[in-house]
Nucleic acid binder design. Structure first.
Lengths: 399, 399
DNA sequence: GGTCATAAATTTATGACCCATATAAACCGT
DNA sequence: ACGGTTTATATGGGTCATAAATTTATGACC
């Protein structure tokens, strides 16, 4: 018996309160009648619960009786809405080279956004923590809020993260990325894998119970949503596609670069191919250091054979991933997310052409994310909102 | 608003009832004090709920005051237990060549078991349905029960099965296997994939949140438990390892035999290898039709080179699967289930030797199931019990 | 402007539930 | 026989959800 649920008499009240609060988080303003339809409770009960929520600081009664001149008969209904001042959520994409952070209200409306380059290896864990706090403070300031307004912060990092927000202790890079943000930031903090958050963002954009979201810029990670829930694994390792290393029959040695994303692969392959390739290619005219994924993709669109070859190799890689995901997890849709997603279409085209059309088995749809470089940060906000919606009572409103 | 939960006044009582019932399903006999410790409710409440459950027919008060001569002081407690006559559950493994069925009481004690060969292709859907009903009737008769005693039947079939118990409409074999048992059998029926049920059985034997169970006799299927829950996919296709076909770099064409289990593969490979191989092998002395997986495994143990080669090929296949599952789903343990599991150890040994030991990444444990050919049936019973434990109130006790 | 219909809020009554406390019952050892 | 101990039962208080009756506010109509 923990003191909180001492009287199970209060349990029912709490259940009703949370249901009503979930409803309030969706609606702009609402009347008792609407809440009755949603929750199935009686008017008396709904009004009682609303009283409680107003007293607790979650709701406020909106006082514009005449204003809403909708042609209603009868006594005008009392109308409630979520208090704006209840608080905000913060999403933070704490990548290796960039931090991006967004403040949003409890309905998901973006109140502020900031992006900043960071040199993680120079900063170290403590430096990343401090940088994150500074950036969050700035964006809160932009939005006219203070740190104490934050009900929940969700942080995305490029590392496997278990349910407790921890990354494997033996991964030096992972420990650097998962820098212990919860000790530095105000309020409750949840840390999650960046690809998982991207998957949550994509799932919010276009709901589907079975999607794989590949976050594939510099590094490679996947967020897997199966049967509507995100897979994690005991060490947070779900979605870590090391199996790509064992593609070529050799089980025991991961292929070099198996953790590289498409962006990194396109760059590496292009730089090395320029030297060994003896055909005609526009890439040769570009200084080696300036060759990157976008240049390669653009060249391919213009018919450059070397670039087209690289697109084909990436497409084959993607098709292989799609087949594995579809067959092993019955995945409906594979989304390519991250900054590279805007230019990825040629790779998708080639991958689609490789998928067997007549196998009789369902094949996943391959699509590019519309969220661009913001997928992770948007997913962090979405994750924060979801957590609050699931258990509103565990977050205390500011009064 | 469905009529059942019309009055949310009764919700709390129902929650308490279900909690108490779950407790009763675990315990043999129990007192109010024990139930109080479990549920956190008051004595008065517990006794009230017990009254209700006795009236509903779930519980009975056990009347042996002096019998339990445990050195207790004070007034003897009233003791309750689950009514034996409440009902039983039935598990049915409706395979391609065999039916196996088990009746068990609500505590999982086996009350009867029967196994029977079937020729599914001769019988057709209707024949399989009728055969299943007949076998279930027999085993119920063995246990001294009738069809009306069955609270729930769970059936395992070798086909993908979605959450509604349906298999893909375009799969002729799958439609034959998933024969529409719910229309033939008495009481509520749930149909599930056989490998999923095997996974549930293994999970019950040795609890672990992340296990893959490979059911690999004649056909190949996997039951995946990730983060403690079983993956299904929208069409029930999770765990359908077609990706094995794209092993060899060719994305578009599934390898022949990619749906074959280890048992079938060992037999096929052995029969064809005997002809092409020109070294010394004991397998040559055996008539082609008598060569099967067990013979091959036994020969390998005795050092036969041809058999050892087959073991090695199977081991490599298993190692590849283990690497994919471990890297993609963070799987802790891979269990080989099915009738072949008793003899599979040499394959496991070889697979373990192929797994990279120094990769720094966690590798899954490879183990053979201890349930042998009964994994699916035991899983079906376990699944039935789990469903009853989860929502006891939806199953009506016989009074 | 007055009357009526309508819809929502409010009040009141009722029954159920859970808890806390008190009282009675049943068993133990001395 | 008599405390000591544990449990069952009874009673009162508090909270809650439902339902019915009542009040309040608004628009439509004459």
């Amino acid at each position: 018996m923990n003191g909180i649920t001492a009287n199970s008499t209060h349990l029912l009240r709490q259940i009703n309160s949370e249901a009503l609060l979930r409803f309030a988080l969706q609606e702009q303003v609402f009347t008792a009648a609407e809440a009755m339809a949603e929750t199935g409770l009686t008017r008396a009960t709904v009004l009682g619960v609303c009283d409680g929520l107003v007293a607790a600081g979650w709701l406020e009664e909106v006082e514009d009786p005449g204003a809403a001149g909708r042609g209603n008969k009868g006594r005008p209904a009392r109308r409630y809405q979520l208090r704006e001042a209840v608080g905000v959520v913060v999403g933070l994409d704490a990548g290796e080279g960039h931090f991006t952070t967004v403040v949003a209200d409890l309905r998901g409306r973006e109140l502020g956004k900031r992006r900043q380059s960071v040199d993680s290896h120079a900063l170290g864990r403590a430096g990343r923590r401090a940088g994150a706090r500074k950036l969050v403070r700035q964006v809160l300031d932009d939005a006219g809020h203070s740190e104490t307004d934050v009900l929940l912060t969700v942080v995305g990092v490029p590392a496997p993260v278990d349910v407790n927000g921890l990354s494997p202790a033996d991964g030096e890079f992972w420990q650097l990325m998962n820098s212990g943000f919860d000790s530095e930031l105000q309020g409750p903090v949840f840390v999650d894998n960046d690809a998982n958050l991207a998957a949550i963002a994509e799932g919010a954009q276009e709901p589907s119970a079975n999607v794989a979201t590949l976050l594939t810029g510099e590094r490679f990670g996947a967020g897997l949503i199966v049967d509507g829930s995100l897979l994690r694994g005991p060490r947070g390792g779900a979605g870590e596609m090391r199996f790509l290393g064992s593609l070529s029959g050799n089980v025991s040695r991961p292929e070099e670069g198996s953790t590289d994303g498409f962006g990194a692969l396109a760059r590496k392959w292009a730089r090395s191919a320029v030297r060994s390739y003896d055909g005609k290619t526009v890439l040769r005219k570009i200084p080696g250091e300036e060759i990157n994924a976008e240049v390669v993709f653009k060249a391919a669109c213009e018919g450059d054979p070397l670039a087209e070859d690289i697109i084909a190799r990436l497409g084959a890689r993607l098709a292989h991933i799609a087949v594995v995901l579809s067959s092993l997890l019955d995945i409906d849709r594979v989304v390519i997310a991250g900054g590279i997603s805007a230019a990825i279409e040629p790779v998708l085209d080639h991958a689609r052409s490789l998928l067997p059309g007549d196998s009789g088995f369902p094949l996943p749809e391959l699509v590019a994310s519309k969220l661009g470089a913001e997928a992770v940060v948007q997913g962090a906000v979405e994750s924060a909102l979801t957590r609050i919606r699931r258990e509103p009572a565990t977050f205390f409103p500011r009064t």
